[in-house]
Design a protein around this nucleic acid. Structure first.
Lengths: 123, 123
DNA sequence: CCGTATCCGTTGGGATACTG
DNA sequence: CAGTATCCCAACGGATACGG
């Protein structure tokens, strides 16, 4: 059973708030493979804008899931990496990503099926 | 390693699009405990509005993760339940919820810590 | 290279009132 | 009971331009 208390739900909601950004799980997942720099993350997520990536990183950082380190070299380098807390979340986040790939066919089929049911009433 | 192809990322993104609604995971999780009706789901998620719940359910239904059944009794009854596909996702979604509860202290501490680092530069 | 600032469209979602 | 309809605001996020 999973009868949860209101306070529990509030905590869960706050966590979800941090994870349900459009690119959060993807970015987090990339970082779980090892530290990466800003443009590397951008390249790893085709379609994300730098603003979205920045926002996303800031949120994950505020959540304590990733760590941001500025290396004061000539052209500044910024390295992002997961914190232990972020790493502990990895099995669950990557689980969803893996699930997506493993069930690709079933997912697409299910979408088709539910679309087919849309106009089922009168026919 | 998790070097993913662009097409894979697109699939993953589309799945995330379905799951990153504010209440999606919570609703899905409740339904994984067994079929439930509209108002039961509403009661199980304090703070959700009927509009948000409706939207959320419609999206999950379109994704083929849940099934909506109308029972034509006196005052109409509508039952929602997970599909096999939705059920197969359950371990991963509930994993995140459980993680939130198990790591409550660490999560709150990490948020505090990152907040503390905000004004670290000049001090 | 790694951002921030601005503009701006789209979407999510809360409140409320109404319907079969 | 289970929605739909409307209004309305805030937030997300893309594009672009600029700064350290």
């Amino acid at each position: 059973m999973s009868a949860k208390k209101t306070e529990d739900l509030e905590l869960i909601r706050s966590v979800l708030e941090e994870l349900t950004a459009k690119w959060a799980l993807l970015v987090l997942n990339v970082l779980c493979d090892g530290p990466a720099r800003f443009n590397a993350l951008k390249r790893a997520n085709p379609g994300i804008s730098q603003k979205a990536l920045t926002q996303c990183l800031r949120r994950l950082e505020a959540a304590g899931l990733i760590l941001r380190t500025v290396v004061s070299t000539a052209p500044v380098a910024v390295v992002y990496e997961v914190t232990p807390l972020g790493a502990s979340l990895e099995p669950h986040t990557s689980g969803i990503l893996d699930w997506s790939l493993r069930n690709r066919e079933a997912i697409l089929a299910a979408r088709q099926a539910s679309r087919g049911r849309e106009g089922r009433d009168s026919l």
